[in-house]
């Protein structure tokens, strides 16, 4: 039933639109830069726990901001899209494009965070970047899959910006806790065999909302 070509079309179409409008992208990047800069002026040399908490708060709100635009097209565009693809393909394509941009913006936010705040001071510890970035990317991937679906729900209601955060933030907690744990272990320089189970947990929390969403989305989209 699911045609890969249709998913690819939605994905590319989304990206093309993003770049043509470009204001959406720019808002997300600017949003993360402003929040990160504000954080850096408020805190100096945080402990490892505080550092992670701040970083994840920034990532959550950036991805929330990004995902809330996922289903913002006008009536005419939806008529056209609905003729081209079935709902499941639409959700998968949208999820992939949103998650891709979320991961990119998250890595950008992390670079700014690193530039302005630096690493937390952990004595006798050399911090490796690669495992940390993998943990962060997988975490924001898991966040964005849940957010894409709640943004689809919120898009069906007018004036939904604040409703979107109320609906999604409690649902983000499982992914957030697993990601926090995995990035903390990465920050503390744990070996790979300790990190793998957490990465698998993050991937599972990507798959769960995606699978649930694929089943439920046709009911949501029918109107």
């Amino acid at each position: 039933m699911i045609r890969l070509k249709a998913i690819k079309t939605i994905f590319l179409w989304d990206w093309e639109l993003e770049f043509r409008r470009s204001s959406g992208w720019f808002v997300s990047i600017l949003f993360s830069a402003i929040v990160t800069f504000m954080t850096s002026t408020l805190i100096r040399q945080p402990s490892a726990n505080t550092w992670l908490a701040l970083l994840w708060m920034i990532l959550v709100f950036t991805s929330l901001q990004l995902a809330s635009r996922t289903f913002s097209a006008n009536e005419g565009q939806w008529l056209y899209i609905n003729q081209l693809v079935n709902p499941m393909e639409l959700l998968l394509g949208k999820s992939l494009s949103t998650s891709f941009s979320t991961v990119l913006v998250s890595i950008f936010s992390f670079s700014l965070f690193y530039l302005w705040i630096g690493f937390p001071n952990i004595p006798g510890q050399e911090i490796l970047l690669a495992p940390l970035i993998i943990s962060l990317s997988l975490g924001s991937l898991a966040l964005s899959f849940t957010l894409t679906f709640t943004s689809a729900i919120a898009s069906k209601i007018d004036g939904s910006a604040s409703l979107m955060s109320v609906l999604s933030i409690p649902l983000l907690l499982p992914a957030l806790l697993v990601s926090l744990r995995s990035s903390k272990l990465a920050l503390l320089g744990e070996p790979l065999h300790v990190l793998y189970p957490n990465w698998i947990g993050e991937i599972a929390l990507c798959g769960l909302p995606l699978a649930l969403g694929a089943v439920l989305f046709p009911y949501l989209w029918r109107s």
Binding site: T150, I153, P170, P174, L212, L220
Partner: peptide, 17 residues
């Protein structure tokens, strides 16, 4: 319709949590 969809989606994630 929307409430039913949210209920199912939220219940599963709650059980995981």
């Amino acid at each position: 319709r929307l409430a039913a969809v949210y209920n199912i989606f939220a219940f599963v994630l709650m059980i995981v949590f």
